[in-house]
Design a binder for these strands. Structure first.
Lengths: 248, 248
DNA sequence: TTATGTTTTGAATCAGGTTCAAAATCCGAC
DNA sequence: GTCGGATTTTGAACCTGATTCAAAACATAA
């Protein structure tokens, strides 16, 4: 009988509904103003029903973060599918995608930061944490693939590091710059004119430091800007006007 | 009359008392279990009195973070006072200090991460935020000084970047690795054996990428370990057994 | 010593996440 | 159809813990 299975479907449909509504509320007034009772009411369900899906408010927030994470993973899939660049350019493309994503979804960046704070993390359900973990699967695969290809071509010498260990470098540059840019007013007080250019430049610097051929000239803005534009066009389907919007 | 001034002194003495007690409670059971009423009682004051000093619980947490931040700034002062290394080694020393500090004060790292989450940040008082900002003053000065010295000696070509813009690179590597290491189980799942070595290696990679002379061989563990040990000894007064403890 | 301003107190208030006993609904069996 | 037990939904009550504020205590000045 399909009864059980229909129930299952209805259940996950309802979960999607909750998440949809929650996302709308969050993007409207920030995730710290999200209220469980209000969310339930907005979906015409009782508060308790919400708790059949999410073990706590934190659990719901992590679920939201995971949902968006899937869109984030798409960045990596797109880069993985891109055949138009050298491995180094593909690694750079990930940095571009990362930056653009966090610009398009500023709430997501904050939410991620928030749910990863131990105080919050501890209050989520193990299942949801599991889910969060396995989201990173494809990410690792794509990155490791890029590094491996670079090694195979002779563009890069791993010098005893595994592909993922190697990738931690550029990754931490991305994470770090994001973290710094979230400190309100920091860049202003350091008199940094163009955080975006600085970010891309540091990525190039780091890749150079890894001796990842072909080396780039980090000081050559024009070249970097051109690469960024090309990546946005070829990998992420962002055309002219959009690109400008993203960049601004 | 010294009445007003005596009052002032008593007031800030009491604030120090509150912070002292709060720190003890936090280090004992984590900052998420800190309770305003319990803290007040532990200090033999009423709850309301606490609110004469801190506009909210979040404000108190930020005050705690700021207090520790002063110890953090000491790292930069020590590096600034160190005369035994090249500018590059001094920059590297900052990374060592940063890592060791976050190991010695794991609660502080978490707390900092937490108070910087917008949800929390918004709930602090403007004065306290101001205070948090100006803590970074000496940090910037020391770092900018190191970079400037390297440029003056001809070890480093700024290529149009200001000293602080340049320093953002290594800084973001530090921040980024810290952020990654806080994601529970990430390093394990990536099969990273020695996060510490990887961290120092990436710092070297990045400095190489900046073409900061004298270049280092990032793959040379022995050399990096020796440099780390030397920094811990000469700059931070950490001798043998302690160093081992720190490293473990 | 009294009038007035200031600080402290802690019980009351308030917010909002979480629970759970009762009501409603579903579903297979007769 | 409808009965009875299992499952799901409900939402008011509960609970924790931050915050407030009117009264009390205290300090200062006249």
């Amino acid at each position: 009988m399909g009864t059980r299975e229909r129930k299952q479907k209805e259940f996950s449909l309802r979960e999607a509904l909750f998440l949809e509504a929650a996302e709308a509320m969050v993007s409207e007034e920030g995730f710290l103003h999200l209220q469980m009772a209000r969310l339930a009411e907005a979906c015409d369900y009782a508060t308790g029903t919400l708790y059949q899906h999410f073990s706590s408010k934190e659990d719901l927030l992590l679920a939201l973060a995971n949902r968006r994470m899937e869109a984030f993973v798409d960045i990596f899939r797109k880069v993985g599918a891109w055949q138009g660049g050298t491995p180094r350019e593909r690694m750079f493309a990930i940095a571009v995608g990362d930056l653009d994503f966090s610009r398009h979804h500023p709430e997501h960046a904050k939410l991620t930061q928030y749910v990863h704070a131990e105080a919050v993390w501890e209050n989520t359900s193990p299942e949801r944490r599991e889910q969060a973990m396995c989201c990173t699967g494809p990410v690792g695969e794509v990155v490791a693939g890029i590094v491996q290809e670079a090694i195979d071509r002779g563009d890069l010498d791993a010098q005893g590091l595994s592909p993922l260990e190697l990738a931690c470098g550029p990754w931490s540059v991305c994470e770090g710059m994001r973290a710094l840019s979230h400190v309100q007013g920091l860049f202003e007080s350091l008199n940094i004119r163009s955080p975006e250019r600085l970010f891309f430049r540091q990525v190039q610097v780091h890749l150079n430091g890894l001796n990842w051929a072909p080396l780039a000239d980090p000081a050559d803005h024009a070249a970097t800007d051109a690469l960024v534009a090309r990546v946005r066009r070829e990998v992420f389907d962002v055309s002219g006007p959009d690109a400008r919007e993203v960049r601004s």
